[in-house]
Write a protein that binds this DNA or RNA. Structure first.
Lengths: 308, 308
DNA sequence: GAAAATAATGAGTTTGAATCATTATGCCCG
DNA sequence: CGGGCATAATGATTCAAACTCATTATTTTC
């Protein structure tokens, strides 16, 4: 007598499917394989005796039946989330500090909205950013001066820490539309050799292009620095040099034609962000939710971002 | 990153727990073992870091956290059920005939309310009772003159049919409060020997006491028949004989002291009801729901009824 | 205080949900 | 039109969650 074939898991899948538009992306977002989702869908469709979505079209299109289930998901999953938050409160885990240490300038672009979304859900949590960017924030977390650190790439395992993937973004090269390099479909490391590279005034370690592309290739262009993203874009637009920034920072500058962007290297330059917490912290409901909420916000809102 | 530990299954469990008042009963209702529920609860409680219910008290008492989850269940599960009904409609399985064949008189007591509850959920289903009680309704189902038959005990497997347990009820002996047998804590078959047994005018096959108790024991009391349950009770109350009826039929007669009831045999006389459908019919959403709905209504509303 | 109900526990088993490795399908573009 | 890329389907295999079984512990009842 198997009453409920349907489980919350399936509703999560449908939601992801709707947001991502295809099985593979949705699977990545759910930390599952494309195969898993395919099997899942097939089982559901067999059970209900009707197709739930048309997959050979981009993005996937939900049938009437699929839409009905999607609506169910939209109604039910938030209720579940609410209940679980309240349970955390009832279990005495509804409040506490959440100090976030961030390495990179640009992260503030998404960190602020994420914090804004988080605050009303967990009014009992004291949310702070550990200001002044820290070269290596991991010791902060280890000695409990921060609950969470955002770091690049997955660091080697540490006994006290646990790492959760946040997302992968693309760093793109920026130049004025009239710049000679704008003619190329993508840039190689060598293309930077005779250029002026405009960056934030931070160590090369913390600059994606330098760390992952130019330093390995032994390229060392002229440099110029600016504190603010707008200032960098200003300099680029006026032809004073080229820059490399995460794709998400520059959406409307591109749209307005002030600057153009080109991938760095054939497949583009991908950078991975992780959230580090102490292992004990990874159990705390509000820290977990901060991570998942941030991830999910970034994946849906930010340009050029994909699941990790 | 296992987000949802909670699944619909758990919500079903909580609901059953609330209705049944203890793990064992709830487990039976869900077709699971008591052990399964115990493990389930423990896992949930470990995950949320708080106790959900106090089990060493009858009925179990939900904690604040438990109540919150129970509320979630009460909100979410009906939404899921609604969605699934609509899916069935969208899949083209929202309508069709549902002709129910019933063996026993008393079954109408619960069949009517069940049908009343069912109708608004499936307006497209043509619900009928195959009237005139049929001695053996199984052939009706086999040759598709009925979609569902209610039968006693689990019949031997038949190639075309599938049987679903409905519930178990107790048949009790009824007598006037002043009757000598009322002094006994329970009745043996032999006690019936010199009595007048008042029954419906149907073959012994279809009378629980006869079939499962007196006939096996070779006891054959005087007989008197009446068509209606009230008439039987009237005769019993006025000392004209004793009767045996399902415990559920007689609640308020007992309460008012007109008659008293005694178990038949040490542990009482238990009878099992099953729903028979054609194997193909067991797949049809509305037939499945009719069965589960009926079962669940009877289990919660009827006296002396337990899960099978 | 014994018997009956009920719950907990840990080991063992089953099942279903995932992955892996591969094949199929559709789409774009030269 | 055919090769290459992105995406989905498939079936075998793996793995772990969830269940059962057998037993012990606890509580209730008479």
């Amino acid at each position: 007598m198997p009453q409920p074939v349907l489980e919350l898991r399936h509703l999560e899948t449908l939601l992801a499917l709707d947001e991502c538009g295809n099985l593979s992306k949705a699977a990545a977002r759910l930390y599952l394989t494309q195969s898993a989702l395919s099997h899942q869908l097939k089982a559901l469709e067999r059970h209900y005796g009707t197709i739930l979505l048309v997959k050979n079209v981009r993005p996937v299109r939900f049938t009437a039946a699929g839409t009905r289930l999607l609506d169910l998901a939209r109604s039910v999953l938030p209720q579940v989330a609410d209940a679980e938050r309240e349970l955390a409160r009832l279990a005495g885990g509804g409040g506490g500090p959440l100090r976030v240490a961030v390495q990179c300038h640009n992260c503030f672009d998404w960190l602020m909205p994420a914090m804004d979304a988080f605050r009303p859900l967990w009014p009992g949590v004291e949310l702070d950013i550990i200001s002044g960017f820290v070269a290596d924030p991991l010791p902060l977390v280890e000695r409990a001066d921060a609950e969470l650190a955002v770091v690049h790439d997955e660091p080697p395992a540490r006994p006290l820490l646990s790492f959760s993937p946040l997302f992968r973004y693309e760093s793109v090269a920026l130049m004025s539309p009239t710049h000679p390099l704008a003619a190329k479909p993508w840039l190689e490391a060598a293309d930077f050799q005779d250029q002026t590279l405009i960056t934030y005034p931070v160590p090369d370690e913390m600059l994606d292009v330098m760390k992952h592309c130019l330093v390995p290739a032994g390229v060392n262009p002229r440099r110029r620095t600016a504190e603010l993203t707008v200032a960098i874009l200003q300099l680029v637009a006026s032809g004073r040099g080229i820059a490399a920034l995460p794709a998400w920072t520059i959406g409307h500058y591109i749209a307005r034609g002030y600057v153009v962007s080109r991938p760095i290297g054939r497949g583009g330059l991908r950078c991975d962000l992780y959230a580090a917490t102490r292992r004990a912290g990874a159990e705390v409901a509000y820290i977990r939710e901060f991570i998942t909420l941030t991830r999910s916000l970034c994946l849906t809102e930010l340009q050029g971002v994909s699941a990790l």
